[in-house]
Structure formats: C-alpha cells, structure tokens
Amino acid sequence: MTTLTTPDRIRAQRTPHRPDSTRAARRAFVAPLIVFLALMSAVPTIFSLVTSLTDYKVGADTPVHFVGLANYVRVVTSPEMLATYGRTFLVVVIALPFELIVGYLIAKVFHRVHELRGSSLIRTVYLLPVMLPEIVVGLLFGYIMNTRVGVLGFLLSAAGLPAPDWLGDPRIAIFSIMMIVVWQWTPLATVILYGGLLGIPGEVREAAALDGAGRIRSVFSLEVPMMRKVIGLIALLAGVQLIGTFATVLVTTQGGPGTTTTVLSYEIYRQAFVFFNTGYGSAIAIITLVIVILLSQLLVRFAFKED
C-alpha cells in the first residue's frame, strides 16, 4: 500500500512540464473545492473573531459593546471553564490509550482468525457501533445505564455484583460517559489496526522470528514502528471524536451531576445556544479551535513525517 505523501515522490520522477498540467487545468480541478472550503472556514472564523470581542447576545435587542479581550480573560480565569477544559483533556488521555490498547488486543485476535470462515461477519458485526449516530448510542446507553430501570445495573445485581450509580454518582459519571464513547469507537481503532497488521508482510514477521524476537518484543520492535502511521491516524480520528463528545452528554446527564460531566462541546452549546452568551461562547470556540489545530498539526507532523 502506498503512503500518504506519495505525490511528492511521483512528482519527483515526473517531467516538470506537461502540456495538460496547465494552470487552467489545475484550477478547474482543484479550485472549486478549495474555494468552497475556504468560504466555509475563513468567513465564519472572521465573524466569530469579531463577535468574541463583543458582549453580543443572540436574540437580545440590547446594544452591543466592544469589550476587547474581556471574554478571553473570562475564559482563562474562570475555574469552571478551566475545569471543563481539564475534564475534556482527561477524557482524551484516558479513553484514547484505552481505545488503542484494547483495540490492538482485539485486532490481534481478529488477525489470528482472519482466514477462518465467518470471521469477516464477526468483524462487521463488531464494527456496527461505529456506524451508529452518536445520539442513538447516547439514548440507548442512557436507558441501559439508568440506575433505576436500566438493564445493566439489574444484570450486575442479579450476578451479585455491586451496581454503581452509573450516571448519577458524581465520582463515576464521567467514566460512564467514557465507557459509552469507548464502546462506540474502540471498534474503529481495532479495524484500522487490523488493517495495519495485515499490511505487515509475512516475510518480515518470519525474519523477526528468526532473529529471535519474542512475542512481546516483536510488538515493540516490529509492529509499533511499522504501524506508526496507523497509530497516528487512530490518535487523530479518536482524539477528534473524543474532544467533540456532545450528543452523549446531551441525552444522558446534561453535564451533571453537578458539573462533573460538562465537557467542552456541551459547554460551548450551552453558552452559545442556551444562554445566548454569544460573545463568550465565540471566545471559548476560538480558543478550542486554536488548541485543536495546534494539537492535530503536531500529531500530523510527528506521525506522518517521512523517514
């Protein structure tokens, strides 16, 4: 399989001037998309930057004032807001490694049986959660994990195990949210890692085995380096998914108990579209966008850099 950045290599081999690669052709092919994406990303950002410097409230006829950086100052000095950023960070640093490690272990099992009859059906069924709307997953688990009438607690107590108050206990509610997210997205990591494992040629494995690499060692000396890009890709996709967690919280806990499950996307929604603190909401959104762009660029440069 080719890599992400093959165009460079191909281009290097190519004669520099080809009659049909004129500027006009390039424009006709590439420009519509670029223009569309630029319009949809740059223009809103300008609107939002301007709004974030004001005390504008959507839906109010009160006069709008320029307030400078006050909204940004409010974001970085509000303990509640900092806690919200911290909580979202916690979700990422716990759920992401979990998805990677568990996803990897399951991928190994799938790889072990990949030539057997029926295994492709098993993998497809296993992947189903990834294909579901987040809102459906949230509604379903809100019901299953309901402490009073949910089937999960019932099964646990029937088995003589303690049934925690999944979504109502302030100490564990955020972990329950993570459980739901992890249930939905670990299969994606698995299937990508599985693709990666298939991509390691048998000869390379055999060579490593001949070199006397043990099972554990071959994971770190062979598989991890060879799948660097795959792991980077999962980190990127899963990280984005985790930072964007919204519907799950909206339909299960509404950010509670207390504020223990108020994550970033949910807080942005509340500030901007429930309280209509549009200026403040814009400031949170801009800060979030800057953080996410920096992180994803770092990850992209690190994971996809050429050897």
Binding site: V240, G244, S265, I268, T278, T288, L289, V292
Partner: peptide, 13 residues
C-alpha cells in the same frame, strides 16, 4: 479535525 460544536458557533453567525 475540528470539533463540530466549536465550528458551529462561527458558522451560525
């Protein structure tokens, strides 16, 4: 890669 909820505030404007 951008979180949709952070994008939608500017887009709404």
């Amino acid at each position: 890669m951008l979180p949709p909820m952070a994008v939608v505030v500017p887009v709404y404007m």
